[in-house]
Design a protein around this nucleic acid. Structure first.
Lengths: 208, 208
DNA sequence: CCATGCAGTCAACAACTGTTCTCCGGGATC
DNA sequence: GATCCCGGAGAACAGTTGTTGACTGCATGG
């Protein structure tokens, strides 16, 4: 159904993507509220005024980045929750999935972790809304599992939120070990696994 | 023992504190990496060059703010962990303590939540180091409780870190409800309490 | 094939930034 | 009481910032 884009629109999306990529790279060592419009256009190799053809402001750019970054995070969360095997195997698989995602999209993870509590209100709200949607999806997924019998929807949502937050926390810790010895990464993976295990145990004994 | 400060040093500390206060207020709607030197001096009502008499750079100011903000958080964490009563009472008390602290020092909480993953490396590292110290203290406190029997030091530290992160998470959520209806705050307190309860249950069944 | 639309350019604007150097006044020290 | 020390003021520097308006070339739709 997707109509083949004309040369024109294709080029526009291309430079728009260039803006997003350049911004994510610049945001490696600063936060969105200090990201300058000219700074981005310079990195893209385009006139400052071209920015306005794609975004109203840097905050607008930020909201677009939220979709980009959380778009890549979304399938990861789904895969993490619906992993197979017994409890410990599932946890190990989930932690490995997170580590792999951080390797593949470090800038995405960094952006979300940084701007979730960052200084730009619209971006904060966009991230919060999307994460709430993720938690809702996780809740729905958990509800299909047999262990969820007897759980209220509210408690399931609480658990889902705990999982989502824990994933982000873990991802952020992995991020800090990107250029650190392998031993450090193993340590992070170990602690994250034990945290997840404790939550799993709490989940198992929640009722009664 | 403390020698009475001379007029000179007293005045210096006074304006230094004015810098910290002004910075915290400005950081309400932006992040440290976008905080300008002149911006701060303007808020204090002092010449731009006076800044250098107290700090080398804005990153240096940030590190000083870490001590200020975490200094106020420290006793709160201690009180939270060593609260009295049965499990549910302790949890309710802890959540209330957190809510009260957010009311009393919103700017401190905001600063820590924002800059913990923020764009200024030295500040990030300072926060991480202090939080690690907090977790260590919590571990030591937990070790004195009878429920900790049979726990390895490593597992206790894992639990302590989980508590610390959960406190910050909860505090950050309370922060977002500062100018929201009371109902919203109650909702946050409820979810936070249930999270803590799940963790407590996991803790109780961790062994065996 | 021609007219319209639109991504991107260019020049210019006032306002702002961090940093240096020089200077001043008054508390501190002997 | 003379001297030194030092927190702060002032002026000036070269760069940077966001935003404007009028322009150009080219893909598009009639």
């Amino acid at each position: 159904m997707s109509h083949t884009l004309g040369i024109r629109q294709a080029q526009k999306q291309k430079t728009r993507q260039a803006f997003l990529d350049a911004a994510l790279e610049l945001l490696e060592e600063q936060s969105l509220s200090s990201l300058g419009l000219r700074e981005v256009t310079r990195a893209v190799g385009v006139a400052p005024t071209a920015f306005y053809r794609h975004f109203r402001s840097t905050a607008d750019l930020g909201v677009a980045l939220v979709e980009e970054a959380l778009g890549s995070l979304h399938p990861m969360i789904g895969a993490t929750v619906s992993a197979a095997g017994d409890s410990d195997q599932r946890i190990a698989g989930a932690v490995e999935l997170i580590a792999h995602h951080v390797d593949a999209y470090p800038a995405h993870v960094r952006f979300i972790a940084r701007e979730r509590h960052g200084g730009v209100q619209p971006v904060r709200e966009a991230i919060g809304a999307q994460l709430a949607r993720f938690a809702e999806e996780v809740r729905a997924e958990l509800a299909t599992h047999p262990e969820a019998e007897g759980w209220s929807d509210d408690d399931l949502l609480m658990l889902a939120g705990l999982y989502v937050d824990q994933m982000l926390m873990t991802a952020s810790l992995f991020l800090a070990t990107l250029d650190a010895p392998e031993q450090e990464r193993a340590r992070v993976a170990d602690v994250a696994s034990r945290r997840m295990r404790l939550i799993s145990i709490g989940r198992r004994h929640w009722l009664g």
